[in-house]
């Protein structure tokens, strides 16, 4: 009986850890550590549906991965209907950038890095104009999402993504902790404790909003 009671209780704040690669439509070999979209998407729906859960903390330490899966999770986080705070520990590269900015408030630890670079494709690539146009469209979607959810301008983000002077033999920019905040991508440099504090603050604000709305 005691056990049953324990099971029914769920934490008020849930934590989504997005670690390793983002795994989407294509299954990755077992050497890769992944966060799978088939796990994350239903979890987010469950969090939205469960009234006991007041807020979500997203912990990111990812190298990137499937663009569509990353964008799907990002859009779901930004439309969760509950306060979401994200924090980047270690790295939030590539598609980890939209995931980091999808929250209501984002943090980055001082030693974390984020790589901004143009999207890439594995496997068979058909060398036609249309492939390039598709890439361009997908890149625009990501840029649109990041600029919608953060303070960076479209021009500046494009400039960082297409920079050739920053990474050896590659196009893009690596930004570190404080720099991500200066560029306006992330809201604040901080740690776990500060992120939790902010999430609780947002939960309280949310509660007050609902109460005042119900009262009128």
């Amino acid at each position: 009986m005691e056990n049953k009671k324990d099971e029914d209780k769920t934490s008020e704040i849930h934590c989504l850890t997005i670690v390793g690669q983002i795994e989407g439509h294509v299954m990755l070999p077992p050497q890769n550590k992944t966060t799978k979209y088939e796990h994350v998407i239903p979890q987010l729906v469950a969090i939205n549906q469960n009234d006991k859960i007041k807020g979500l903390l997203v912990v990111l330490n990812t190298v990137g991965g499937d663009v569509e899966a990353g964008l799907a999770i990002s859009e779901m986080l930004s439309s969760l209907g509950k306060p979401v705070v994200s924090i980047v520990f270690g790295g939030g590269h590539s598609i980890g950038v939209p995931l980091a900015v999808a929250s209501n408030y984002s943090f980055i630890s001082p030693t974390s890095t984020m790589t901004l670079h143009p999207i890439r494709m594995n496997g068979t690539v058909i060398g036609v104009q249309q492939t390039f146009e598709y890439f361009d469209k997908m890149q625009d979607l990501i840029i649109e999402f990041v600029t919608r959810k953060s303070k960076i301008t479209k021009e500046r983000l494009k400039q960082l993504i297409l920079d050739t002077a920053n990474i050896a033999k590659d196009v893009g920019t690596v930004i570190i902790g404080e720099q991500a905040v200066k560029e306006g991508i992330i809201n604040e440099v901080g740690g776990l404790d500060r992120a939790m504090e902010k999430l609780k603050e947002l939960i309280n604000e949310n509660k007050n909003n609902i109460e005042s709305r119900d009262a009128t």
């Binding site: 704040i13 934590c15 979500l56």
Partner: peptide, 12 residues
């Protein structure tokens, strides 16, 4: 069976 990872968003 050895547990590798539990998949949950509940920190508890």
């Amino acid at each position: 069976n050895k547990i590798v990872r539990v998949i949950s968003t509940d920190p508890k």
